[in-house]
């Protein structure tokens, strides 16, 4: 019984990091209709910036703030200098449909190799802000540590902040409107292009937090966030790719599920299970657990 509870807790902590990544993917997908594969790269670059600040100043939180800011700037920059140009050029011909996806892939490759050129391929780690040793109750030490608590709490705070932003502010209304019906939003006086850039910035910032949090217990390298991207994508698909709540729920389910497999079956099957979950969801419920039904199948 104790092991079950531990597994659920650890799973929630892992899942909440997936939640940030899948939220970032969903935010961009809603506004731009592109699954941004560069999200992993953007988050990784922001984490490297956060890492530099955190190791130099020896304050994790300062690094986190810088990682968020860098993530937001990079996200906005990608949309402004990159996606806008792309959508202006690649409009006709056989490549029009596939160009955006391929472009984000190119960007992922660019960021990976640029980071590799600057920082090299060595594994780096950021000292965690709180203890990584598990809580002790009586004589037993749990695998669940203050760091896990911190991760869950901070992800909750981020989610609350984002839901307030989206439901209680004018900016959030504009974001939702331009994602839902860009032309009507434009008629209502919303500058949809700018709103979209803000959406990319928010996604980038969220990605930066995800990178910093996962690096506080894992190593950082130019491709260390690839798996996070994959699991974030799977979580987003579980949630329907359209719904922000769905992506978070999907990520928590995925995190807990994979941790159960990790603890009870073994490491070798975690990735395969994640992949199988993706295939099964696509086959059985392609609209996701909370998604709408239209526009899913080709």
């Amino acid at each position: 019984m104790q092991k079950v509870i531990e597994t659920v807790l650890i799973g929630l902590s892992t899942g909440s990091i997936y939640a940030l990544m899948s939220l970032a993917i969903v935010l961009v997908w809603r506004s731009t209709r592109v699954v941004n594969f560069a999200q992993a790269g953007q988050a990784m670059l922001s984490t490297y910036i956060g890492y530099e600040i955190a190791t130099r100043s020896e304050v994790f939180w300062l690094g986190l703030v810088f990682a968020i800011a860098a993530g937001a700037l990079i996200g906005a920059g990608v949309d402004y200098f990159f996606m806008r140009v792309l959508f202006k050029h690649a409009t006709t011909g056989p490549a029009a449909v596939v160009a955006p996806v391929i472009a984000t892939l190119g960007l992922l490759g660019l960021i990976r190799s640029a980071v590799g050129l600057i920082w090299g391929g060595d594994l780096r780690s950021i000292p965690a802000p709180v203890s990584r040793d598990g809580y002790t109750i009586g004589d037993t030490t749990l695998p669940f540590s203050p760091l896990n608590t911190l991760i869950i709490v901070s992800v909750c705070l981020v989610l609350i902040a984002i839901s307030i932003l989206f439901t209680r502010t004018n900016l959030g209304l504009a974001l939702r409107a331009s994602a839902y019906a860009p032309e009507i939003a434009q008629l209502a006086g919303i500058k949809t292009a700018q709103t979209r850039t803000i959406g990319w910035a928010i996604a980038g910032g969220v990605g930066g937090i995800a990178g910093m949090l996962i690096t506080s217990y894992n190593f950082l390298s130019p491709n260390s966030l690839d798996l996070l991207l994959v699991f974030g994508f799977i979580a987003a698909v579980i949630g329907g790719l359209e719904s922000m709540v769905g992506s978070v729920v999907g990520a928590l389910i995925l995190g807990v599920g994979l941790t159960f497999i990790l603890n009870y079956v073994g490491t070798s099957l975690t990735f395969i299970s994640g992949f199988l979950v993706l295939i099964v969801v696509l086959l059985v419920k392609p609209e996701g657990i909370l998604g709408s039904r239209k526009g899913r199948r080709a």
Partner: peptide
């Protein structure tokens, strides 16, 4: 059978894993 992003994401997952 699924549209663009799903196939792209699934195959990317495969390439990573």
């Amino acid at each position: 059978r699924l549209s663009g992003p799903y196939l792209a994401g699934t195959t990317l997952a495969l390439a990573v894993g």
